[in-house]
Amino acid sequence: MIPMPSTLLATVVEPLPQEAGQAVGDALGQASELAAASGDFSILELILHASIPVQLVMLILVFASVASWVIIFRKKRVLDRAEREAEQFEERFWSGTELNKLYAGATERNRAVGGMEAIFEAGFREFGRQRQRRGIDSRTQLEGAQRGMRVAASRELDDLEQNLEFLANVGSISPYIGLFGTVWGIMVSFHGLANMKEATIATVAPGISEALVATAMGLFAAIPAVWAYNRYATKVERIGGRYDAFADEFASILERQVQD
């Protein structure tokens, strides 16, 4: 056994001073309070305690997000119906039904036509109108039908593209609106430190958290809008190509009828 030095044996462990013990207790109390506060973290509380400009930014982003989702669901229903109606009309058109019967069905009373059927109706109506005029050659008749189909196709595509511009604007502008709210909130938080003698991370953390919520809301509004715009714009372009192909094929059929 190694003998201990006499100086170490004679050393007496003294308790900490009262001030030091009180400081340790205060530090532990602050840590527990911060832990409790972090446990009560709520997005709603951050929004309610944010400054007025930041709250206005959040309100704008909420409105943009809600409007975007409404347009997304409506536009999906419109585009799906356009594709379904195009398929159904193409089946009737290529089934061997006479053009006069198809035109009579498209011009029935109390029946709204749209999409590919509207293009057919416009082209066949203009073709019949040109044929009734005297002294009109076959080329002029065909050009009139093609012009009528182009106008009808342009009108149908305009209806399909409606509100897509709003989705594009929300997708491109929302992140910058959220960033503006974040910058403003952080600026207000640091401006409030000027009146404080001692500044800690706990002092500026709530203000910065409130400001960062604006950026998160901007991304929440922008991401679905960008995704929907890209998807629906591609779908509209595909439907437009389908309309153009049908118009060319129908024009070829009318040209053969003129030559016969």
Rank of each mutant, 00 (worst) to 15 (best):
M1D: 05
I2S: 09
P5K: 15
S6K: 15
L9T: 15
A10I: 03
V13L: 05
E19A: 06
Q22T: 12
A23W: 13
G29E: 06
L46K: 13
L46W: 11
H49L: 10
S51M: 04
S51A: 13
I52P: 06
V54W: 09
V57N: 14
V62K: 14
F63P: 03
S65F: 11
V66I: 12
S68L: 05
W69S: 00
I72V: 13
D80F: 10
E83A: 09
E85G: 04
E91P: 00
F93A: 10
W94C: 04
N100V: 02
N100E: 03
L102P: 01
L102M: 04
L102W: 07
A104V: 06
A106M: 00
T107Q: 13
N110C: 02
V113K: 13
G114M: 06
G114S: 13
A118E: 09
F120E: 15
A122E: 07
G123V: 08
F127W: 14
R131D: 02
R131F: 04
Q132T: 14
G135C: 00
I136E: 10
I136R: 14
Q141V: 10
L142R: 12
G144E: 03
A145R: 00
M149S: 08
V151I: 15
E156P: 00
D158W: 06
D158V: 02
L160Y: 09
L160T: 10
E165K: 11
L167C: 03
N169G: 12
I177E: 06
T182K: 13
V183S: 11
V183P: 07
W184M: 14
I186K: 14
S189A: 09
F190S: 08
G192Q: 03
L193S: 14
M196G: 06
K197A: 04
A202T: 14
V204Y: 15
G207C: 05
E210Q: 08
E210G: 03
V213T: 08
I223W: 15
I223K: 15
W227M: 12
T234K: 14
R238W: 11
I239P: 01
D244P: 01
A245V: 05
A247D: 06
D248L: 03
E249Q: 11
S252L: 00
I253R: 08
L254H: 11
R256F: 06
R256G: 04
